[in-house]
Each structure stands twice: as C-alpha cells, then as structure tokens.
C-alpha cells in the first residue's frame, strides 16, 4: 500500500507523459492518414492546345519506367523514357486527365509504373503493415514502461536535493559532475 504523497507528486509527470505519448501518437496518426489519403491530383481543366513540358513532368514525376528503375520518369535520360513523356503529352493534348493517363500506363505497362503500388489486393499490405508494426511497438513500450514503474522503488530518498532549496545552476553543475563520474 502506498501513501498519497508520491502519487500526487507523480500525477503531473504522468499527465505530461501522456501528453507526450499523445503527441507522438498524433504524429504517427498524421503520418498514416497521409499515407492513406490518395494524393489530391491537380486536375488541369481543359488543357490548352500546346502542352508544356511542365505539365508533362508534373505527371511523369510520379511515374517510373522499367528501363531506368528507381529513377522517376521526368528525369530519366533514356530514349524509352523520352518516348513515354511524349506519349503523356499526346494524351494530355487529347484531353485526358492525369488519372486516365496513369491508368492507361498501368494497363499498358503494369503496376510498376506507379511510384507507390495501387492499394488493392496484396498491395494493401504495403500500407497496413508499417502502421500496425509501429502501433505494436508503441504498445510494447508502453506496457514495458508500466511494468518498470510498478517495480520502481518509491523515489522518496532521491527527491530532497532536488527540492528547489539550492539554486538551479548549482544543481546543474552537480548534475554535470555526476554524469562525468558515472561514465
């Protein structure tokens, strides 16, 4: 059985820890939603007759051709990629949307032309596994923390010097020295 003193002393810590964990969690969540939300693609309304290189590159940037693996289509210097870019230009001139063009390339050359696998079939795993694994890690760490806290001796003997009677700077010097000794 414990007395109330340490408990009260601990609670702000716990709040702050919870806040910190929340923050990390939120960051993770933000990352995950970013993964899941499909990129809002800039639709170009009724393309002008002449398609600029920039319009082509905007699409090509997110595509990959099998000839130069891992190099985005917009910067790949090979002839094959130049022709692919030309094809994008033609399709744009015909009034195709970005999504249509990408779909055409997928049908024609396979899923690998896309920078990230389309989320269907087995490919779901790409997006599902990392968040699951990370959440699992968070859970494990959290339960480990709890187990360690339970086994912790009451911090009574450690608190007096830090009580605030000594000036903060001396406390700091003491800490620096202690850390040097402890190496």
């Amino acid at each position: 059985m414990r007395n109330n003193q340490p408990l009260r002393d601990v609670s702000p810590t716990r709040r702050m820890t919870a806040a910190l964990l929340w923050m990390v969690g939120l960051l993770l969540l933000a990352g995950m939603t970013l993964i899941f939300v499909p990129q809002a693609s800039a639709q170009n309304p009724t393309p002008p007759p002449a398609i600029s290189d920039d319009q082509v590159n905007a699409i090509a940037k997110e595509m990959y051709c099998p000839v130069c693996e891992n190099t985005p289509l917009d910067v790949c210097p090979t002839q094959a990629c130049a022709e692919w870019r030309e094809l994008i230009r033609e399709k744009l001139a015909e009034g195709w949307s970005e999504a249509q063009i990408k779909q055409y390339f997928v049908d024609r050359f396979g899923d690998r032309v896309l920078a990230t696998p389309p989320a269907r079939g087995l490919n779901w795993l790409v997006y599902v596994i990392p968040p699951i694994a990370i959440l699992l890690g968070v859970f494990l760490l959290y339960s480990a923390f709890r187990a360690w806290r339970r086994s912790a001796p009451p911090p009574a003997q450690a608190s007096p010097p830090a009580a605030g009677s000594a000036p903060a700077s001396d406390e700091y010097v003491r800490r620096l020295e202690e850390e040097l000794r402890n190496r």
Binding site: G31, R112, A115, N123
Partner: peptide
C-alpha cells in the same frame, strides 16, 4: 513487379 517509391517513404517517415 511494383515500385515502392519516394512518396511512400516520405509520407511514412516524415512524422
């Protein structure tokens, strides 16, 4: 074959 390219890594690791 599929490509797991920069957008995947960037979105997942940035946070």
């Amino acid at each position: 074959k599929v490509t797991v390219g920069p957008p995947f890594y960037e979105r997942a690791t940035a946070p």
